[in-house]
Design a protein around this nucleic acid. Sequence first.
DNA 1: TGGGGTTAT
DNA 2: ATAACCC
Length: 459
Amino acid sequence: MEWTVAHRAPLSMEFSSQEYWIHDELEPAGSSSCRVIVHVDLDCFYAQVEMISNPELKDKPLGVQQKYLVVTCNYEARKLGVKKLMSVRDAKEKCPQLVLVNGEDLTRYREMSYKVTELLEEFSPVVERLGFDENFVDLTEMVEKRLEQLQSDELSALTVSGHVYNNQPVNPRDTLHIRLLVGSQIVAEMREAMYQQLGLTGCAGVASNKLLAKLVSGVFKPNQQTVLLPESSQELIHSLNHIKEMPGIGYKTTKRLEALGISSVRDLQTFPSKVLEKELGISVAQRIQKLSFGEDDSPVTPSGPPQSFSEEDSFKKCSSEVEAKTKIEELLASLLNRVCQDGRKPHTIRLIIRRYSSEKHYNRESRQCPIPSHIIQKLGAGNYDVMTPMVDILMKLFRNMVNVKVPFHLTLLSVCFCNLKSLNTAKKGTMDYYLTPSLSTTSHAGKRSFKMKDCHMED
DNA sequence: TGGGGTTAT
DNA sequence: ATAACCC
């Protein structure tokens, strides 16, 4: 559903800057529509959180362990040869002094992650999360405002903060250069605030779109920032050694591209568009071929509160219904606590399994169903009332997927709450609530802008 | 590979 | 419900 600003008065903060840009005529004629985007990427995030929890770990090589993997490690450990996603055995072999902490419970990481997003939102509300440790921020409007405030003598004295990609000289008369440069100064303030208020360090990249901002953020590593000026964008994308390094081109697409003889970014740039469209479908083909030129018009979409909550556990073997039920109960108990804190209510529950198999890269199956309304209402305070009926529902979903009369071997169970709705969601036919912001004072909901999709919920 | 997330079909 | 993508 698209709404134009013209339909609404007064113009307020409720709509994202994207819509403002697309629909509004306030953009001064002749001004460039080039965006200023930043990608912020925390340094070895889980390890940083652990070092803040226990400062004695700070000067030691530290790895964060989930099952038999070291999922991330600090820079002390990296110097000694430990890599991300290395097995515990290999890591200990490379680095016998490695200190390991268990990171299977994501609670503290998740909490710190949202603190970072909220801090960035204070600078500009358009913040998109990517995993727990990366955020995109659209700084276009903020840069414009700062430029308006500047006197001409201040304007000529502007300097870049951090690195310039490729050491490209800044042209002080180039309006794009100036805007990116102001972006780099805002980003330096963001990183300083992250450090002063949360004790976290990270990298950042400033560029004219999300793809380039993300690629350039990793150029100087740890705790540094880099700005990309438009003239160097081709150098940046060609610095990738393989198309699999291009964000947006994943495992499957890489395999299909390789089958077509495409392995470098230039291969993809020069490959016939029509053939690519036939092979991959028009949507994927056009999108990734634009990516290969460094073009990415996807907006920074404000993430807002999460769309789903899930807890999972992997293991060597689960082969009985009783065993599965015990694990499901544990997952559900944690989830109920989380959903309770959020304040919104899930209307759908899903069970996910992974069956044992020697090959098969990705094999997961799921079943979902609506949560009965009488259970939804009880969610919040006494979560013990809802445990039993919810486990019953989950076990029905389980038996729908797994024939318990024949032997089975599972290696993962996961429970997911989704289709989250605010308590005071407007209903069809009572649209007088129309522009009333959420009254909820719970953690996320109170801070968020009103969203049109909250308005028309069919049950 | 872990323990999460998202959007598109 | 699955498949693709991201970390």
